[in-house]
Design a protein around this nucleic acid. Structure first.
Length: 943
RNA sequence: GCCCAGAUGGCGGAAUCGGUAGACGCGCUGGUCUCAAACACCAGUGGAGCAAUCCGUGCCGGUUCGACCCCGGCUCUGGGUACCA
């Protein structure tokens, strides 16, 4: 019977669905295992063959774990909020919900065809009110919490209120508004005036990870800096724990390293410098002519080389140190900084800055040093002020050279005439009490000194910033927040979810409010506890609601918890469900989320953990990044100057064509093995209708009497590996592959392409080999019979069991496919029809190619599903060989092999080799200096 | 600039513990079948050489009886990051 993959796949997909084969229960005696895919954003373009790579890998692992006796949670859902749907809505007027749901339906259809073992009953969509209920709820918890730096965990804000009541006798005299203002900067979710990445084209702020090189990651629009009052999440409070936690999770070292760099811990010191304003003699507004400025440095040892100070333009010190004389110049500089976009700043690396007119006093040398303002110092890091040591910091060096400031070397032998010496090594000179010490000792010594003398203190700083959580957008989760007397209040928990209102226009309002400003019924009635018309706002009982929505990462930060218990309407996840599943055991997804989603969800998870709501401190125990599947593009070469003539790729280096052709992308679907289907090409686009070709043999259509008819002439296309995208005409749709070869072939081929973690190009050409293998395998299941398997059959099978088990455990799926092929060909050569063998083979294949394996399993006479079988165990006894083959090397070069009985003692092997007839030939009269015998491996004769 | 990966035939890749480099698949070449083509099947296929042999895992050097694998120094490609004091 022929391998009719399409019939087999349809039949079993339906049977599995009808029988709920992949439905997972939270109640089981089996051990639990949770395998998660990063859920996709459902784009309008649908899936291409690159998307399912990680899903196939995780599906294989899930099915394997289930066969090993685990109760496996393997869900799928959709990251449904996002900018593209909203941009599309602005352009076309289509409601983003509508396009999103259409796209989701298409994704589900495509995913189902591939035969994943998802429990679709657990699906979540972040735009579903039942889901974002819990996103809003978590935000409310964050609003009502603060980070206790002593306990190093989040605590209810009520505890802070208690402390204020106890410690501050004035607290109870404050008005409600004053109290709220006082609490605000402590909340984990707080409102603050922050310098944000404002994207005018998108009309919204963006997170750091949504901006690249001063342009928005989505759309590539310019981004500028702006101060805005925004919701923020205090991620930075968790910096230490986020860093430390990396040591206890099984992620790739490179990903952990990326996170470590992003968190950016640096151990240093804060130091106080006295500042003298020479133009101010008396106190002004209670401010004396002398005050202290605090700076942060990791090189306390270099204090003797400080020749100037630099403030960030946004530093609050700037106003205090600027003298009347310098005021105009400083103001002009600040103004210039404010108006530069992020991109301009990055593009323009010239040194800029301005003198403030004031001087600081070096606390160790008492030297007067000038204070400058420059935008190379960042306001958000440390204290926004630095001590500049031009000899040992390249940025300070460039500044000093530009403004002609002194450069004092502090390390013996360092030549600072051309560039600074930044390395933290060497012996200190010109450094008072530090002279003669090595740099690390000097840093330590100076830290002790400043601590003891009160000049400063040891301090740890993190690069990690708080996350800005407001988006001036429609298609996101509304904040469950209303404003009373200008202060935010949360909706009562029982009123959640606050549903996203319907609006007709998705652009900002005429007066610049976010799109939610268009919503008419968008006010909160505190007494009725419901959303009412905003015409009713009286600021007594009816108040305005927040107009911003939450960012993309809000919905993806805890979705893995919701899968555990996605129908629970009482809580995010029940204690029982969470206690059973614990955490994600294996998470597979792209590396592009290294500093966004994977930081935010770890933060979110730790917050919920602090509140005692979940059992695990980390969300994802093991994490693997799948590589990207790149496209393999094809080109035709248009002869420049010709009307419509194309030169075959093998000719373009010929002198007559060299540098006279222009490559043009051609649809990979009309190219086979780099040979262009010229008829299809002429039909592809009107402009190619009259295309003429110079074929691989140099002839043209004019030479060909049968113009346009099939002939032996071939037009060879060029190719290149590029991103898979529509514009490159190299997109391959899984639906097409499945229609032609079946889902099982697609799954095997995706794995066969190469190691999961590596990027690799998709080339459909190789897929036939994998398909042929399945066909040959299918033919072996014609008539399985019950009989004792032979020793050879068992050996072949158990070799396979061992190999596949190792591969799956190590996520080395690509090496399994050849193992299956080899086993198939061995068993086929043995004429194997033993039911016992074939049955076991089917189980091994089931994670990789579930449909054909199910059909094979049933052909062996089974009535159950193959997924409910047990994973075979390798019996080493079948693998033992009677004899041992030894490669024999002479001076490390293999010359011949010889065979002897297994377990021949080392000395005996040595004797046998030396007595071997070939040995004398290769010794060629030379004496044997040494002979190395590695039992079971190799023999090497040194002469 | 800094950090992290990677580099093996015409192509994707294998070699899992330092022990026969190139498994498996594609492509290509030759053959069988066919009126012919497609499919299928069989054989060959790293390079040079008639051969014996020699050369070969980005480059240079080292360790070792033996190195794709370990160490030192580079080159190139991909990804991340961007003045973090």
């Amino acid at each position: 019977m022929e391998y009719n993959f399409s019939e087999i796949e349809k039949k079993w997909q339906k049977t599995w669905e009808d029988n709920g084969a992949y439905t997972v229960s939270n109640e089981s005696d089996k051990p639990h295992y949770y395998v998660l895919d990063m859920f996709p954003y459902p784009s309008g373009a649908g899936l291409h063959v690159g998307h399912p790579l990680g899903y196939i890998a995780s599906d294989i692992y899930s099915r394997y774990k289930r066969l090993q006796g685990f109760n496996v949670l393997h869900p799928m859902g959709f990251d449904a909020y996002g900018l593209p749907a909203e941009q599309y809505a602005i352009q076309t007027g289509q409601h983003p919900e509508k396009t999103t749901n259409t796209n989701i339906a298409r994704y589900i259809e495509q995913l189902k065809k591939i035969g994943f073992s998802y429990d679709w009953g657990r699906m979540v969509r972040t735009c579903d009110p039942e889901f974002y209920h819990w996103t809003q709820w978590a935000f409310v918890q964050m609003f009502h919490s603060y980070y206790d730096t002593t306990l190093q965990k989040a605590q209810p804000i009520a505890k802070l209120v208690e402390r204020f009541e106890a410690d501050d006798p004035n607290w109870k005299n404050l008005t409600e508004k004053e109290q709220q203002e006082r609490l605000m900067p402590y909340r984990i979710a707080y409102l603050a005036d922050t310098k944000v990445n404002w994207c005018p084209a998108l009309g919204t702020v963006l997170a750091n990870d949504e901006v690249s090189e001063g342009l928005s990651v989505r759309g590539g629009f310019p981004v500028e800096q702006r101060i805005m009052r925004q919701w923020c999440l205090r991620v930075s409070a968790y910096a230490g724990r986020l860093l430390e936690g990396l040591d206890h999770i099984n992620w790739t070292e490179s990903l952990k390293e990326t996170q470590r760099n992003w968190i950016g811990r640096s151990e240093g010191a804060e130091m106080n410098f006295n500042v003298r304003r020479k133009d101010v003699q008396c106190t002004k507004d209670g401010e004396k002519d002398e005050f202290q400025m605090t700076i942060f440095t990791t090189r306390a040892d270099t204090i003797y080389g400080v020749t100037f100070m630099v403030l960030a333009p946004e530093s609050e010190y700037v106003a205090r140190v600027t003298t009347d004389e310098q005021k105009a110049e400083v103001e002009a500089y600040l103004d210039r900084c404010r108006h530069r976009t992020e991109r301009e700043r990055i593009a323009d690396r010239r040194v800029t800055g301005v003198f403030t007119g004031s001087y600081a006093i070096n606390p160790l040398t008492n030297a007067e040093i000038p204070i400058y303002v420059s935008d190379y110092v960042l306001a958000g890091y440390g204290t926004g002020a630095i001590m500049a040591v031009p000899a040992h910091d390249s940025r300070d060096y460039a500044f000093a050279k530009h403004f002609d400031l002194p450069i004092v070397p502090l390390i013996e032998g360092a030549d600072v005439s051309e560039q600074s010496f930044d390395a933290k090594e060497g012996r200190m000179i010109n450094s008072g009490i530090l002279n003669g010490l090595e740099v690390p000792e000097a840093i330590q010594r100076m830290k002790e000194y400043i601590t003891n003398t009160g000049i400063g203190r040891v301090k740890v700083n993190y690069r990690l910033r708080d996350a800005i959580f407001s988006r001036q957008r429609y298609w996101g989760e509304p904040f469950p927040i209303y404003y009373k007397d200008g202060m935010p209040y949360t909706l009562p928990e029982e009123c959640l979810p606050l549903q996203l209102p319907e609006i007709k226009e998705f652009k900002p309002t005429a007066n610049g409010e976010p799109p939610l400003g268009h919503a008419q019924v968008w006010a909160w009635d505190e007494q009725k506890k419901q959303v009412v018309d905003k015409a009713l706002i009286d600021n007594q009982t009816v108040f305005p609601l927040e107009l911003c929505t939450m960012p993309g990462f809000a919905g993806s930060s805890a979705y893995y918890l919701r899968y555990m218990d996605n129908h629970n309407s009482e809580v995010l996840v029940s204690r029982e469900a969470n206690a059973y599943w614990q955490q994600v055991n294996l998470y597979i997804g792209g590396t592009e989320h290294a500093t966004g989603h994977l930081i935010y969800s770890r933060f979110w998870n730790k917050f919920l953990y602090d509140l005692g709501l979940i059992v695990s401190d980390e969300p994802f125990q093991r994490l693997v990044n799948q590589g990207m599947i790149q496209g393999r593009s094809n080109f035709v070469y248009r002869l420049i100057g010709s009307r419509n003539t194309y030169v075959s790729a093998n000719l373009i280096e010929n002198p007559e064509y060299k540098d006279k052709v222009q490559p043009i992308h051609v649809d990979v679907n009309i190219v086979h093995n780099d040979i262009l289907d010229t008829t299809a090409f002429r039909a592809w686009m009107p402009e190619f209708k009259d295309a003429e070709f110079i074929y691989s043999d140099g002839t043209t259509d004019v030479d060909n009497p049968y113009f346009g008819s099939p002939c032996e002439k071939q037009y060879i296309c060029g190719w290149a590996v590029e991103k898979m995208s529509k514009s490159m005409f190299n997109v391959v749709n899984p639906d097409d592959v499945i229609a032609k070869y079946g889902a099982d072939t697609l799954r095997l081929y995706e794995m066969f392409l190469g190691p999961l973690e590596m990027s690799k190009p998709w080339d459909t050409n190789g897929i036939d080999g994998v398909h042929r293998f399945l066909r040959k395998l299918w033919n072996m299941y014609e008539a399985p019979i019950d009989r004792e398997p032979t020793r050879e059959e068992l050996k072949s099978l158990h070799k396979l069991i061992k190999k596949i088990t190792w591969d799956v455990e190590n996520l080395s799926f690509n090496t399994s496919i050849p193992a299956f092929m080899i086993a198939q060909s061995e068993l086929s050569a043995l004429g194997c029809n033993s039911r016992q063998i074939l049955e076991q083979f089917a189980i091994l294949l089931a994670p990789y190619a579930p449909h054909i394996a199910e059909a094979m399993w049933h052909r062996c006479g089974n009535e159950t599903f193959v997924i409910d079988a047990s994973w075979p165990v390798c019996n080493e006894a079948y693998l033992v060989e009677d004899s041992q083959k030894y490669p024999v090397q002479f001076n490390g070069k293999v010359r011949f092999t010889f065979e002897c009985p297994k377990d021949t003692p080392k000395e005996e092997v040595e004797k046998l080799v030396l007595a071997h007839e070939e040995t004398a030939k290769y010794l060629a009269g030379n004496a044997v200096k040494k002979i190395i015998v590695v039992p079971g491996r190799i023999v090497n004769i040194v002469m």
